[in-house]
Design a protein around this nucleic acid. Structure first.
Lengths: 110, 110
DNA sequence: TATAAATACCTAAGCAATTTAGGTATATTT
DNA sequence: AAATATACCTAAATTGCTTAGGTATTTATA
Protein backbone atom coordinates (compact mmCIF):
# COMPACT_ATOMS: atom_id res chain seq x y z
CA UNK A 1 0.00 0.00 0.00
CA UNK A 2 3.14 2.08 0.12
CA UNK A 3 3.14 5.66 1.30
CA UNK A 4 -0.36 6.40 0.06
CA UNK A 5 -2.85 6.93 2.89
CA UNK A 6 -5.79 6.89 0.52
CA UNK A 7 -5.91 3.09 0.28
CA UNK A 8 -6.30 2.79 4.04
CA UNK A 9 -9.65 1.12 4.62
CA UNK A 10 -10.07 -0.35 1.16
CA UNK A 11 -8.18 -3.62 1.58
CA UNK A 12 -11.05 -5.79 2.86
CA UNK A 13 -13.31 -4.66 0.03
CA UNK A 14 -10.61 -5.32 -2.56
CA UNK A 15 -10.03 -8.83 -1.19
CA UNK A 16 -13.74 -9.66 -1.16
CA UNK A 17 -14.11 -8.39 -4.73
CA UNK A 18 -11.22 -10.55 -5.95
CA UNK A 19 -12.71 -13.61 -4.28
CA UNK A 20 -16.12 -12.78 -5.75
CA UNK A 21 -14.59 -12.80 -9.22
CA UNK A 22 -12.12 -15.66 -8.84
CA UNK A 23 -13.78 -18.10 -6.46
CA UNK A 24 -10.73 -19.25 -4.55
CA UNK A 25 -7.45 -17.47 -4.02
CA UNK A 26 -4.46 -17.73 -1.71
CA UNK A 27 -2.71 -14.79 -0.07
CA UNK A 28 0.34 -14.56 -2.24
CA UNK A 29 -1.82 -14.85 -5.34
CA UNK A 30 -3.92 -11.89 -4.16
CA UNK A 31 -0.85 -9.67 -3.88
CA UNK A 32 0.25 -10.68 -7.42
CA UNK A 33 -3.22 -10.14 -8.88
CA UNK A 34 -3.63 -6.65 -7.39
CA UNK A 35 -0.24 -5.60 -8.74
CA UNK A 36 -1.16 -6.99 -12.13
CA UNK A 37 -4.58 -5.29 -12.29
CA UNK A 38 -3.23 -1.91 -11.16
CA UNK A 39 -0.09 -2.16 -13.30
CA UNK A 40 2.13 -2.16 -10.23
CA UNK A 41 0.57 0.98 -8.76
CA UNK A 42 -0.96 -0.78 -5.78
CA UNK A 43 1.26 -3.17 -3.85
CA UNK A 44 -0.42 -5.00 -0.97
CA UNK A 45 2.05 -5.65 1.83
CA UNK A 46 1.87 -9.06 3.45
CA UNK A 47 1.83 -7.43 6.87
CA UNK A 48 -1.49 -5.90 5.88
CA UNK A 49 -2.94 -8.78 3.88
CA UNK A 50 -2.55 -11.78 6.20
CA UNK A 51 -4.10 -10.13 9.26
CA UNK A 52 -6.95 -8.94 7.02
CA UNK A 53 -7.60 -12.46 5.71
CA UNK A 54 -7.60 -13.80 9.28
CA UNK A 55 -9.98 -11.05 10.36
CA UNK A 56 -12.40 -11.79 7.51
CA UNK A 57 -12.24 -15.48 8.35
CA UNK A 58 -12.91 -14.75 12.05
CA UNK A 59 -15.94 -12.67 11.01
CA UNK A 60 -17.31 -15.65 9.11
CA UNK A 61 -16.97 -14.02 5.70
CA UNK A 62 -14.27 -16.38 4.43
CA UNK A 63 -13.52 -20.08 4.67
CA UNK A 64 -10.14 -21.72 4.17
CA UNK A 65 -8.96 -24.84 2.43
CA UNK A 66 -5.34 -25.85 2.73
CA UNK A 67 -3.78 -27.54 -0.28
CA UNK A 68 -0.26 -28.82 -0.77
CA UNK A 69 1.22 -27.65 -4.05
CA UNK A 70 4.83 -28.65 -4.81
CA UNK A 71 5.09 -29.89 -1.25
CA UNK A 72 4.31 -26.43 0.04
CA UNK A 73 1.05 -25.53 1.79
CA UNK A 74 -1.24 -22.97 0.26
CA UNK A 75 -4.25 -21.52 2.05
CA UNK A 76 -7.08 -21.02 -0.38
CA UNK A 77 -9.71 -18.57 0.80
CA UNK A 78 -13.27 -18.42 -0.52
CA UNK A 79 -16.45 -16.53 0.37
CA UNK A 80 -19.04 -17.93 2.76
CA UNK A 81 -22.71 -17.14 2.14
CA UNK A 82 -22.39 -14.22 4.55
CA UNK A 83 -19.21 -13.23 2.78
CA UNK A 84 -21.08 -12.99 -0.52
CA UNK A 85 -23.71 -10.72 1.03
CA UNK A 86 -21.14 -8.54 2.77
CA UNK A 87 -19.10 -8.34 -0.41
CA UNK A 88 -22.08 -6.82 -2.24
CA UNK A 89 -22.61 -4.32 0.57
CA UNK A 90 -18.98 -3.25 0.69
CA UNK A 91 -18.77 -2.96 -3.08
CA UNK A 92 -21.81 -0.68 -3.10
CA UNK A 93 -20.24 1.42 -0.37
CA UNK A 94 -17.07 1.66 -2.40
CA UNK A 95 -18.97 2.75 -5.51
CA UNK A 96 -20.71 5.47 -3.48
CA UNK A 97 -17.34 6.46 -2.05
CA UNK A 98 -15.82 6.79 -5.53
CA UNK A 99 -18.80 8.85 -6.70
CA UNK A 100 -18.43 11.16 -3.71
CA UNK A 101 -14.73 11.67 -4.34
CA UNK A 102 -15.57 12.37 -7.96
CA UNK A 103 -18.04 15.13 -7.16
CA UNK A 104 -15.63 16.57 -4.59
CA UNK A 105 -12.92 16.69 -7.25
CA UNK A 106 -15.32 18.00 -9.90
CA UNK A 107 -17.93 20.12 -8.11
CA UNK A 108 -18.53 22.10 -11.31
CA UNK A 109 -20.55 19.16 -12.65
CA UNK A 110 -23.11 19.44 -9.87
CA UNK B 1 -16.85 10.34 8.29
CA UNK B 2 -19.22 7.95 9.99
CA UNK B 3 -18.71 4.23 9.97
CA UNK B 4 -17.10 4.16 6.54
CA UNK B 5 -13.40 3.29 6.69
CA UNK B 6 -12.88 4.16 3.06
CA UNK B 7 -12.62 7.88 3.65
CA UNK B 8 -9.72 7.38 6.04
CA UNK B 9 -6.76 9.17 4.51
CA UNK B 10 -8.71 11.41 2.15
CA UNK B 11 -9.55 14.29 4.48
CA UNK B 12 -6.42 16.41 3.90
CA UNK B 13 -6.82 16.15 0.14
CA UNK B 14 -10.50 17.08 0.34
CA UNK B 15 -9.72 20.14 2.49
CA UNK B 16 -6.96 21.31 0.15
CA UNK B 17 -9.22 20.88 -2.87
CA UNK B 18 -12.00 22.95 -1.26
CA UNK B 19 -9.54 25.72 -0.42
CA UNK B 20 -8.15 25.56 -3.97
CA UNK B 21 -11.64 26.18 -5.33
CA UNK B 22 -12.95 28.64 -2.74
CA UNK B 23 -9.92 30.66 -1.66
CA UNK B 24 -10.73 31.07 2.02
CA UNK B 25 -12.87 28.88 4.23
CA UNK B 26 -13.42 28.33 7.94
CA UNK B 27 -13.78 24.95 9.60
CA UNK B 28 -17.49 24.88 10.15
CA UNK B 29 -18.03 26.03 6.58
CA UNK B 30 -15.94 23.13 5.30
CA UNK B 31 -18.13 20.60 7.10
CA UNK B 32 -21.29 22.25 5.61
CA UNK B 33 -19.83 22.40 2.11
CA UNK B 34 -18.78 18.74 2.06
CA UNK B 35 -22.24 17.65 3.20
CA UNK B 36 -23.80 19.83 0.53
CA UNK B 37 -21.56 18.58 -2.30
CA UNK B 38 -22.02 14.91 -1.36
CA UNK B 39 -25.76 15.29 -0.65
CA UNK B 40 -25.25 14.43 3.00
CA UNK B 41 -23.34 11.21 2.26
CA UNK B 42 -20.06 12.43 3.69
CA UNK B 43 -20.14 14.09 7.10
CA UNK B 44 -16.78 15.40 8.34
CA UNK B 45 -16.57 15.15 12.12
CA UNK B 46 -15.08 18.13 13.90
CA UNK B 47 -12.81 15.83 15.88
CA UNK B 48 -11.20 14.91 12.57
CA UNK B 49 -11.33 18.29 10.85
CA UNK B 50 -9.82 20.64 13.40
CA UNK B 51 -6.70 18.57 14.11
CA UNK B 52 -6.27 18.18 10.33
CA UNK B 53 -6.45 21.94 9.76
CA UNK B 54 -3.91 22.49 12.54
CA UNK B 55 -1.64 19.86 11.05
CA UNK B 56 -1.80 21.40 7.57
CA UNK B 57 -1.05 24.80 9.09
CA UNK B 58 1.91 23.37 11.04
CA UNK B 59 3.23 21.89 7.78
CA UNK B 60 3.15 25.32 6.19
CA UNK B 61 0.44 24.42 3.68
CA UNK B 62 -2.21 26.72 5.16
CA UNK B 63 -2.30 30.18 6.69
CA UNK B 64 -4.98 31.53 9.01
CA UNK B 65 -6.80 34.82 9.32
CA UNK B 66 -9.13 35.36 12.24
CA UNK B 67 -12.20 37.49 11.62
CA UNK B 68 -14.99 38.46 13.97
CA UNK B 69 -18.40 37.89 12.45
CA UNK B 70 -21.46 38.65 14.58
CA UNK B 71 -19.17 39.03 17.58
CA UNK B 72 -17.92 35.47 17.13
CA UNK B 73 -14.43 34.60 15.90
CA UNK B 74 -14.01 32.67 12.68
CA UNK B 75 -10.70 31.19 11.56
CA UNK B 76 -10.38 31.51 7.81
CA UNK B 77 -7.84 29.15 6.27
CA UNK B 78 -6.20 29.64 2.88
CA UNK B 79 -3.43 27.94 0.91
CA UNK B 80 0.19 29.06 1.10
CA UNK B 81 2.37 28.77 -2.02
CA UNK B 82 3.57 25.39 -0.77
CA UNK B 83 -0.03 24.49 -0.07
CA UNK B 84 -0.95 25.14 -3.69
CA UNK B 85 1.83 22.87 -4.91
CA UNK B 86 1.02 20.13 -2.44
CA UNK B 87 -2.66 20.39 -3.30
CA UNK B 88 -1.87 19.61 -6.95
CA UNK B 89 0.24 16.63 -5.92
CA UNK B 90 -2.38 15.19 -3.60
CA UNK B 91 -5.14 15.71 -6.15
CA UNK B 92 -3.14 13.79 -8.75
CA UNK B 93 -2.58 11.00 -6.24
CA UNK B 94 -6.29 10.89 -5.56
CA UNK B 95 -7.12 10.69 -9.25
CA UNK B 96 -4.72 7.76 -9.63
CA UNK B 97 -6.27 6.16 -6.56
CA UNK B 98 -9.78 6.47 -8.03
CA UNK B 99 -8.59 4.98 -11.32
CA UNK B 100 -7.03 2.04 -9.50
CA UNK B 101 -10.19 1.37 -7.51
CA UNK B 102 -12.12 1.57 -10.76
CA UNK B 103 -10.07 -1.10 -12.48
CA UNK B 104 -10.20 -3.28 -9.35
CA UNK B 105 -13.99 -3.02 -9.38
CA UNK B 106 -14.20 -3.50 -13.15
CA UNK B 107 -11.30 -5.75 -14.16
CA UNK B 108 -13.25 -6.90 -17.23
CA UNK B 109 -12.41 -3.60 -18.91
CA UNK B 110 -8.68 -4.27 -18.79
C1' DT C 1 26.79 -25.44 -7.73
C1' DA C 2 26.35 -22.02 -4.60
C1' DT C 3 23.51 -17.95 -4.20
C1' DA C 4 19.85 -15.06 -5.04
C1' DA C 5 15.17 -14.44 -6.04
C1' DA C 6 10.65 -16.02 -5.96
C1' DT C 7 7.07 -18.43 -3.63
C1' DA C 8 4.27 -18.92 0.62
C1' DC C 9 3.11 -18.40 5.08
C1' DC C 10 3.33 -15.66 9.65
C1' DT C 11 3.60 -12.01 13.89
C1' DA C 12 4.25 -7.83 16.65
C1' DA C 13 5.68 -3.05 17.70
C1' DG C 14 4.80 1.39 16.26
C1' DC C 15 2.43 5.01 13.71
C1' DA C 16 -1.10 8.00 11.91
C1' DA C 17 -5.86 9.17 10.82
C1' DT C 18 -9.61 8.61 12.50
C1' DT C 19 -13.87 8.05 16.16
C1' DT C 20 -15.89 9.00 20.30
C1' DA C 21 -16.91 11.83 23.74
C1' DG C 22 -16.50 15.27 25.82
C1' DG C 23 -15.81 20.84 26.49
C1' DT C 24 -16.88 26.37 25.87
C1' DA C 25 -19.60 30.15 24.07
C1' DT C 26 -22.79 33.01 21.19
C1' DA C 27 -26.76 33.50 17.81
C1' DT C 28 -30.94 32.05 15.99
C1' DT C 29 -35.12 29.54 15.77
C1' DT C 30 -39.12 27.37 17.92
C1' DA D 1 -37.40 29.57 27.79
C1' DA D 2 -35.43 25.89 25.45
C1' DA D 3 -33.61 23.81 21.57
C1' DT D 4 -30.90 24.10 17.56
C1' DA D 5 -27.33 26.05 14.83
C1' DT D 6 -23.03 28.25 14.65
C1' DA D 7 -18.06 28.06 15.78
C1' DC D 8 -14.20 26.75 17.96
C1' DC D 9 -11.44 23.12 20.69
C1' DT D 10 -8.99 18.63 22.97
C1' DA D 11 -7.75 13.92 24.36
C1' DA D 12 -8.33 8.91 24.99
C1' DA D 13 -9.34 5.01 22.39
C1' DT D 14 -9.70 2.57 18.13
C1' DT D 15 -8.31 0.99 13.71
C1' DG D 16 -5.74 -0.15 9.65
C1' DC D 17 -1.94 0.04 8.20
C1' DT D 18 3.75 0.09 7.88
C1' DT D 19 7.92 -1.60 9.22
C1' DA D 20 10.63 -5.11 10.37
C1' DG D 21 11.35 -8.94 11.43
C1' DG D 22 10.72 -14.55 11.21
C1' DT D 23 10.48 -19.67 8.79
C1' DA D 24 10.80 -22.73 4.87
C1' DT D 25 10.75 -24.55 0.07
C1' DT D 26 11.39 -23.96 -5.03
C1' DT D 27 13.26 -21.91 -9.06
C1' DA D 28 16.37 -19.06 -11.53
C1' DT D 29 21.01 -17.16 -12.09
C1' DA D 30 25.93 -16.20 -11.90
Amino acid sequence: MQKNNLYKGSLSTIVLKLLTDNGKMYGYQITREVEKITAGQLVITEGALYPTLHKLEAKGLLNVEIKKVNNRPRKYYFLTENGKKESLNLLNEMRAFIRNLDVLLNPEFL
